[in-house]
């Protein structure tokens, strides 16, 4: 359902994506790993038009992703995004954050949206935090609200941009648990992450990016346990045994 064909992207004179082609099927969980600066977050942000790209094509369900075209709204309502730093709206409660898109973008009836919002908060384990403001929640709770906000759009896929990187270590588990739940329910997910064990356990496929190209890709178990490429081996060694 997500198709990338020879995508190139540059920031000024620096080319950060150098011809990436990949596809994500419906119901698939794809993890993107790689060193910082490899372009993994950028490629994710290109998929829902937060970044533009110069060459190649990205399509979501056959619709070309073009951030300057009116069709971008349709793309974004189908592909939600979860950010590293949560980016919840600080002036709205957890529930208000969740129902903002359904009510104001999709124009759903207020009562129905609220009801759906409550169900989603319950699903991420925060039924009792509906009336709390983001600054009253821990990082892990904020990220789970952000996941509920993404789900509220009834998306066909969710993009996760290092969803646990800004969390204290003891809060990582609760967020990953929610993500695993989504994966089990068959949600299409593209996850940029450093959580190798999560990728091994939950991902169907892993892409290893370095310097703007896909160095290695394949089944999660194969890439993570028996990497073929030297750069993948080197990266995994450094992530798994930092000292």
């Amino acid at each position: 359902m997500i198709e990338l064909v020879d995508v190139h992207k540059r920031f000024g004179s620096l080319e950060v994506i150098k011809g990436i082609s990949a596809s994500v099927a419906a119901g698939e969980v794809v993890c993107i790993i790689g060193p910082s600066g490899s372009g993994k977050s950028t490629i994710l942000r290109c998929i829902n038009g937060l970044e533009s790209y110069e060459a190649g094509t990205i399509t979501v369900e056959g619709v070309k992703v073009d951030r300057d075209a009116p069709s971008i709204t349709a793309v974004r309502t189908q592909v939600s995004m979860v950010f590293q730093r949560f980016n919840l709206f600080p002036h709205r409660t957890a529930l208000e954050n969740v129902v903002e898109g359904p009510i104001y973008v999709k124009r759903e009836a207020r009562d129905a949206a609220m009801e759906h919002g409550r169900q989603l908060l319950e699903r991420v384990g925060l039924a009792n935090k509906a009336g709390s403001y983001p600054h009253e929640l821990s990082g892990g709770q904020q990220q789970r609200v952000a996941i509920a906000r993404a789900l509220a759009m009834r998306p066909k896929a969710i993009l996760f941009d290092e969803p646990t990187s800004a969390l204290d270590p003891e809060l990582v588990g609760e967020v990953l648990a929610v993500m695993r739940l989504l994966a089990e329910d068959g949600m299409t997910m593209v996850v940029v992450t450093h959580e190798i064990s999560f990728a091994r356990e939950v991902a169907d496929r892993v892409l290893f990016l370095d310097h703007g190209v896909i160095v290695e890709e394949g089944k999660a178990a194969e890439v993570l346990s028996a990497p073929k490429h030297a750069r993948t081996q080197d990266f995994l060694r450094r992530v798994l045994r930092p000292i």
Partner: peptide, 14 residues
Amino acid sequence: DRGQLEAAQSIGMG
């Protein structure tokens, strides 16, 4: 914060 703009865009807000 720029993240607010991106969060709004990511749920399809114009």
